[in-house]
């Protein structure tokens, strides 16, 4: 469960202070599929960095599964990320010269999981993310964009995280491929009850979630249930 209470983030560059998040509060329960939506520069990525324990808020409290994450050291944050967070990035961020399996199992080397188990878990995640088995031994730069994003999703799943954070996961994909990726998220949420936070500036993409949090200039302007959810026909391809 995610709880944000009066989160403020101010970037300081010398004497210049840039307030980016100005008092943001919300809760996300386990198993929810939430989209955070807002125009460019509204502070979505900044918020995601805090939710993903890559950064800490200037003030306010961020609790992840009842643990206060807002004042931890760098190493403690790394532990939170390792155990509870799965990231999916717009630009995939795969190791291009490594195989799919190696990419997916990468997070587990930092949890000192033995190699056989890493491979087993990576394969399970790849099944969940819907990447056909005949691609598993490919190098990641031999895949299509949609396939790469599925590898990235599998990697986000591999440590069995509390939340999956996706920042513009369809931003680099064409509409059709983007739909396939969104369908994958929907299925993970429906069948496996993963908590998913999807960050986007497009309403069309946000409409694939169950709930949409609208953010503008560092403030939440609307937090509502998505009335007309788009369900993607899931043939996983």
């Amino acid at each position: 469960m995610i709880e944000c209470l009066d989160i403020v983030k101010i970037y300081k560059n010398g004497d210049v202070e840039t307030p980016v998040l100005k008092n943001v509060s919300f809760k996300i329960n386990d198993g929810e599929f939430v989209a955070i939506m807002g125009p460019s520069g509204s502070g979505k990525s900044t918020l995601m960095h805090i939710l993903g324990a890559l950064d800490t808020p200037t003030s306010g409290v961020y609790k992840l599964d009842d643990q206060d994450v807002s004042k931890l050291s760098d190493d403690q944050l790394a532990n939170i990320r390792k155990n509870k967070i799965g990231f999916v990035f717009q630009s995939f961020n795969l190791l291009s010269r490594a195989t799919v399996i190696r990419n997916v199992s990468l997070p587990l080397i930092y949890s000192e999981v033995p190699k056989e188990e890493r491979i087993k878990k990576a394969k399970q995640s790849l099944v969940l993310a819907g990447l056909p088995e005949n691609r598993w031994e490919h190098l990641s730069n031999q895949l299509s964009g949609g396939q790469m994003q599925r590898v990235a999703i599998a990697r986000a799943l591999v440590n069995d995280p509390s939340i999956i954070l996706a920042d513009e996961p369809t931003g680099n994909l064409d509409t059709k491929t983007g739909e396939v990726v969104l369908a994958t998220f929907q299925e993970l949420n429906n069948k496996n009850h993963h908590t998913i936070v999807l960050i986007t500036h497009e309403l069309y993409v946000a409409q694939h979630a169950d709930r949409i949090i609208h953010i503008q200039d560092g403030l939440i302007i609307k937090d509502e249930k998505n009335q007309n959810k788009r369900i993607v026909n899931n043939d996983l391809n």
């Binding site: 790394a78 990320r81 155990n83 961020n93 190791l95 990468l106 930092y110 949890s111 440590n159």
Partner: peptide, 16 residues
């Protein structure tokens, strides 16, 4: 650099 960022995002500590 991006690889390093990624490794850190998935839980690598500075020491690693």
């Amino acid at each position: 650099t991006r690889e390093i960022g990624l490794r850190k995002a998935v839980g690598a500590k500075s020491k690693d």
